[in-house]
């Protein structure tokens, strides 16, 4: 599998990273190098193997249904690049 420039652009869109046109070509070449190297995994016989998502071998622990947080609007908004009153603000979105 190899990444053509259109695919690189599409992935850039999905990842929300703006790519300048010269970057598309250079990045495509790098990504192809990495993916080509990764293709060695095709040698591995994975028939009948259950996928392993993580290293922790246990079931999920549950929390009690108790309100423990909230009422800290100022701390929440303190790092916001654009704050309007009690809200985070972004350029207007049209739905």
């Amino acid at each position: 599998m190899s990444l053509d420039p259109a695919t690189v652009r599409r992935i850039g869109k999905l990842a929300r990273i703006r790519l300048a046109e010269p970057e598309v070509v250079a990045l495509g070449a790098e990504l192809n190098g990495i993916l080509g190297w990764i293709e060695q995994l095709n040698e591995v016989d994975i028939d009948g193997i259950e996928p392993l998502a993580g290293a922790a071998q246990m079931a999920l622990r549950w929390r009690d249904d108790v309100v423990t947080e909230g009422g800290m609007r100022d701390a929440l908004l303190a790092n916001a690049p654009d704050r309007e009153g009690d809200f985070f603000a972004v350029p207007k979105v049209v739905e």
């Binding site: 929440l76 654009d82 309007e84 009153g85 009690d86 809200f87 985070f88 603000a89 972004v90 350029p91 207007k92 979105v93 049209v94 739905e95």
Partner: peptide, 15 residues
């Protein structure tokens, strides 16, 4: 929740 009618150029976010 996004509020789109509070400001002419911005949407407000309430989490």
């Amino acid at each position: 929740k996004s509020l789109h009618d509070q400001h002419p150029g911005k949407s407000y976010i309430d989490l």
